[in-house]
Design a protein around this nucleic acid. Structure first.
Lengths: 242, 242
DNA sequence: CGCCTCTTTGATAAAAGTCAATCAGGGTGG
DNA sequence: CCACCCTGATTGACTTTTATCAAAGAGGCG
C-alpha cells in the first residue's frame, strides 16, 4: 500500500515541479529553488486508503503532497476520531509531529497519492547554503497554525449551514489555485468525513447538501459538486472562515 | 497601556530566568542557554486589558510570556470573535503571524503581564552559533499546531460538559507545571471568554460550573476554582482533549 | 454608596443529533 | 453479463442539547 521511491537525477525535482509556485519553494527565486533540488531524495506512493503515517510513529520528516489528497486525523484513547485537515497537492503534512519526533495524528490517502519526503536534518543542513529556507519553513508552519485556527473559528462561531458553505468555498479556492475548476469538482471524502471535520453528523451534511441543491446554490450528485451561485454561498458563509 | 523596556546586563536573562525549564530554552543545556541570553533585548509590560498586538499589525517577532496571562482571538470582517488560546508564563505568542509578517489575531492581557520580545532575524542569526535553536523553535511551533488541533477535537467530538471539564483539567495541569496548585486557582477569564473559547455560550458555562459544584466535582466562587474530584473530572472529560 | 459589569438561574425555542428505513452505485463472483 | 451485496447517501420522525431571551443577584471600583 505504501511504496518508497528513490529520487534519481532524471526524476522531477523542485525546480522542474509544476507545484513549485505553491509548495515549499513558494516565493523563492529560480536559483534558490535549484538549491532545493537536493532536499527531496525520496517519494512515497500511496494507494487509496493507505496510511502515510500513524499516530505514534517515529518521525524526522515532513511530507509535501505531489499528487492526490490526504486527510489527517487525531484519535484519542477511547478511539474517538477528529479529522483535522484535508490536504491537497502542494500542501505539507506532518508538521504537528515535530514536538516529540512522534506523529500525533494519522495521515491517510483519500485517493492514490504521492508525497515528497523532506527530512528535517537535511533541511537544517541545507539552510546553511540557503538561508531563505528557514523563514520559509516557519511561514509554512505558521500557515498550518492559521488553518487550524480557522477551523476552530468555523466550529466556534458558525452554524452548520455556514460551516458547510465555508468548507465548499475553501475547497473551491484551493482547487482553483491548483489550476482546477473552482466551480466543478469531485469530493474525495465521504459525508461522514466532512461531518467529522466540521463537527457535524453525516446526516446533517447530507441534508444541507440537499437543501443547498434545492435552493439552487449547488448541484450535487454523489461526490460530484457543481457550484451554481458562488456569491450566495459566500453570503451564507459570512465571508472568511476557511 | 503597553510599555517597552530595554533589557540591560543586570536584568534577568534566559539563563537566570525561573521559566527556563518551560519556555524557549526547554531541554537545552546550561551552556546553550547562556548563548540564548543575547536574544531577548526588550520586554513589554502590559496592563490588564492592554493589547500586545492587534490583527493586521506588522510583525517580525514572537513573544514569550514572562508573567501574567494573555488571550489570543481571531476576528472576522463581521466582527465575530473567536478566542483561540489562553496563554500562561513560558508559552509563546504570535506564531500564527509569521506567514505574511502580519498578525492574524489580537493578543490581549488578561491581567498585568510581561513578555520577552524575540525578534526572528536575531533568532536566525543566533542559529548559526546555536544550531539547536532551529529544531527547538520548530518544536514550539509544532506544539502550537497541536494545541489548536486539540481544541478542534474538543469542539468536534466533546459535549459541553466534557469540554468544560477538559478545559479545567488543562488549566490545572499547566498551572501545576508552573509550580502553582493544580487544584486551586483563579480563572483570569470571564464566563463569556471561556464560552467563546469552547464554542459555548456564557450561560451554558455558568450552568455547568453550578452543576459541577452541585455534584461535588468542584467548588467555585466567582473566579476562584477548587477542584475537589480530579478523577471524576477526568472521567467526565474522557481523558485527553486539552 | 451607587453604578456597572459579570454571573446566575429560569422559561422557552431552535439547532443539530439520534434512530431507523430506504435508496443508489460500484464492485464481485457466479 | 447480471444479480447481489456492501458501503455510502438520503430522508423522515423524534429527541436531546444547547442557544436565546429575560430577569434578578453579586461584587468591585470609582
Amino acid at each position: 500500500m505504501q511504496k518508497r521511491i528513490a529520487v534519481t537525477p532524471e526524476s522531477t525535482h523542485c525546480s522542474t515541479c509544476m507545484l513549485s509556485s505553491l509548495c515549499l519553494p513558494i516565493g523563492m527565486s529560480p536559483n534558490e529553488i535549484v538549491k532545493l533540488d537536493v532536499l527531496v531524495k525520496e517519494r512515497i506512493r500511496l494507494a487509496k486508503g493507505a496510511a502515510l503515517f500513524y499516530l505514534g510513529d517515529q518521525t524526522d520528516a515532513v511530507y509535501a503532497i505531489r499528487s492526490g489528497s490526504l486527510k489527517t486525523q487525531l484519535e484519542d484513547s477511547a478511539g474517538q476520531v477528529q479529522i483535522t485537515g484535508f490536504l491537497l497537492p502542494g500542501e505539507i503534512v506532518g508538521m504537528d509531529g515535530l514536538l516529540e519526533h512522534r506523529q500525533l495524528s494519522h495521515a491517510l490517502a483519500l485517493e492514490d497519492s504521492e508525497v515528497c519526503v523532506i527530512r528535517l536534518d537535511d533541511m537544517d543542513r541545507l539552510c546553511e547554503h540557503l538561508p531563505v529556507l528557514q523563514p520559509q519553513f516557519r511561514r509554512l508552519m505558521s500557515k498550518e497554525i492559521q488553518r487550524s485556527h480557522q477551523l476552530v473559528m468555523s466550529m466556534g462561531v458558525l452554524r452548520s449551514e455556514q460551516r458547510l458553505a465555508a468548507f465548499l468555498l475553501n475547497l473551491s479556492q484551493r482547487l482553483s489555485a491548483l489550476g482546477y475548476s473552482s466551480t466543478e469538482f469531485l469530493l474525495r471524502m465521504s459525508r461522514d468525513e466532512i461531518g467529522n471535520y466540521l463537527g457535524l453528523t453525516l446526516e446533517t451534511v447530507s441534508r444541507l447538501f440537499s437543501r443547498f441543491a434545492r435552493e439552487g446554490l449547488i448541484r450535487i450528485r454523489q461526490r460530484e459538486v457543481q457550484i451554481l451561485d458562488l456569491g450566495a454561498l459566500r453570503d451564507l458563509a459570512g465571508v472568511d472562515c476557511g
